[in-house]
Structures are given as C-alpha cells and as structure tokens.
C-alpha cells in the first residue's frame, strides 16, 4: 500500500464506496425505490436527506438504487465487451491471415459509425430491456477492446521470446497463455477502467435520452431526465445523479491512470 499515490488512493476509496453502495442498496436506502413518500421536489430535510423528486419519491433512495442499476449494467457491459473483444483480438493476432482480415475489416466497419448513433439505430427496433442494453453496449464497445487486444498481442507476437518458444516446439495454447497473455494483461486491465467509465456514461446518456433503463426502474441517467424540468425553477435535483456519475468516472479514471503508469514504468519487471 505504501507506494500508492494519493490521487489513486482517493480514486480507490470512492470506487470502492460506490460499489459497496450498489451491492447493499436495499439495506442502505431509507425508502423503497419507487415508493411515493412526500410532496413534489421537497427540499432536503432530516426526513428526506436529499429531498424528493418530481413525483415525490425519496431522492436519496432513488440515487442508491439508481447507482445499483447503472453500475450493474456498466459492469456487465464491460465484462461482455472485454471477453468478446480480447478473445477475438488475440485470435486475430495469433492466427493472422484471413481470420485477422475478416475480423479487422468488420470492426473497421462498425467503428465507422459513431457508437451512440449506431446504438440508437439498433434500439429503434429492439425492445429496450436491461439485457438488450447490456448486449448492444457490450458488443458495440468490444470493437475498441478488440483493436487494443489485437495491437498489444501483435506487438508481443513478433518478439524474439515468442519466436524462441515456437522454435522450441511449444503449442499455440502455451504461446497465447504463457508467453503473450502475461505481457498483455497490464494494458488491458488499465483499459478496462476506461471502458467501464465509457459504459457508465453511455448507459446514462441513453437513459437520459429516454432510450435506456425504463421507469419506474431507477438509474442515474434516468433520474436526470425525470428531474430536468426542475432546473429552470432552480431546483438542482437533476444535478445530483449527474455529479454521482462524474465522481464515479473520475475515481475510476484515477485508478486506471495509476495502474497504467505503474505497469508502463515497470517495463516488464516484477508484477
């Protein structure tokens, strides 16, 4: 622990806090998620710590449940994007030839459309449910993971130690898992943080546009949408979830930055 810079510590602390909150949401939230307990946009009080929302639900409870939904979707999306992207990326790098060409050109095609626009096109015909959201976001984002994983693996695959392993007669599985993977892990782990942030921002944006998580289910982007009319009357309820998104994203960013710096400065030493 002693070598962790303060910025990364702060990042770790808040990231941990948000994940714990997401895990134990039902225990922490003072009221139910969709329970109407007070008047419209009541200010902060001892009864409602953060006040109430546009139809009189406790804002703190909705924030906690909303965080749970947002973090759940983002985590699942990240996992899907990583598993798909890195497996296909490694496969393309190691097999080369037409497999590589086919996969890479298809990814080029997907990436030539802005992700949000493509997601909107797809969501216009798909039912908007949480599994569909995870699937669409995860698969669209896996293009970026694919590119990184492929690039990293291609760089490593041309190193002399990989050639030495091939000359020794090692099998492809050994080369992927024992020679390439240990060296590709750190940039991928750092990228994971950035992909997670992107997922949080992405699902929040979709929900804010009304095309993500559907009410009464709470999520941070949706809470902004529900309360945005309040802004013009000077009621800042819509800003709260947005701040939550920002702090989560910054915290994860700080951690990812630290992981990346730590691993690049190691230049392949212990770790």
């Amino acid at each position: 622990m002693k070598n962790i810079p303060p910025a990364a510590l702060i990042g770790l602390f808040f990231t941990g806090l948000y994940f714990l909150m997401a895990l134990f949401a039902p225990l922490l939230a003072p009221y139910g998620m969709a329970e109407i307990v007070g008047g419209v946009w009541e200010p902060s009080s001892s009864q409602f710590l953060l006040g109430t929302d546009s139809i009189g639900r406790d804002l703190l409870s909705r924030m906690i449940y909303g965080g749970r939904t947002t973090i759940f979707i983002a985590t699942m999306g990240t996992i899907l994007s990583f598993v798909t992207g890195s497996i296909l990326g490694f496969l393309a790098a190691v097999s080369g030839g037409w497999v590589d060409q086919l996969l890479s050109r298809f990814v080029d095609l997907l990436m030539s459309i802005p992700t949000l626009i493509f997601a909107l096109v797809v969501l216009s015909v798909m039912p908007v449910t949480i599994p569909v959201l995870i699937l669409v976001m995860g698969l669209l984002d896996s293009t970026r993971v694919y590119r990184l994983a492929r690039a990293v693996a291609v760089d490593i695959a041309v190193m002399d130690f990989v050639e030495a392993a091939r000359l020794r007669g090692e099998k492809t599985a050994w080369i992927i898992f024992r020679e390439i993977l240990p060296n590709a892990l750190s940039p991928l782990v750092a990228e994971m943080g950035l992909r997670f942030i992107f997922m949080v921002l992405f699902v929040s944006t979709l929900s804010f546009l009304g095309l993500g998580v559907q009410p009464p289910e709470a999520d941070w982007g949706g809470i902004v949408k529900e309360n945005k009319e309040g802004i013009v009357y000077g009621i800042p309820a819509a800003l709260l979830p947005a701040f939550a998104i920002a702090t989560l994203a910054i915290s994860v960013n700080l951690v990812a930055d630290w992981v990346l710096n730590r691993t690049t400065s190691l230049k392949g030493g212990r770790g």
Partner: peptide, 21 residues
C-alpha cells in the same frame, strides 16, 4: 521435437529474447 532440440538459437537482443514476466 528432436530436430528442434538439437538446433538452438541465440538472439542479438537478449532483452527481447526473454519473456520479461
């Protein structure tokens, strides 16, 4: 495997010839 064993190779850049991990 016997062919491979009996014919070994040493590289110019020892840095990249060994897996750093």
């Amino acid at each position: 495997r016997e062919d491979l064993r009996e014919l070994q190779m040493i590289y110019q850049m020892a840095d990249t010839a060994m897996n750093p991990r």
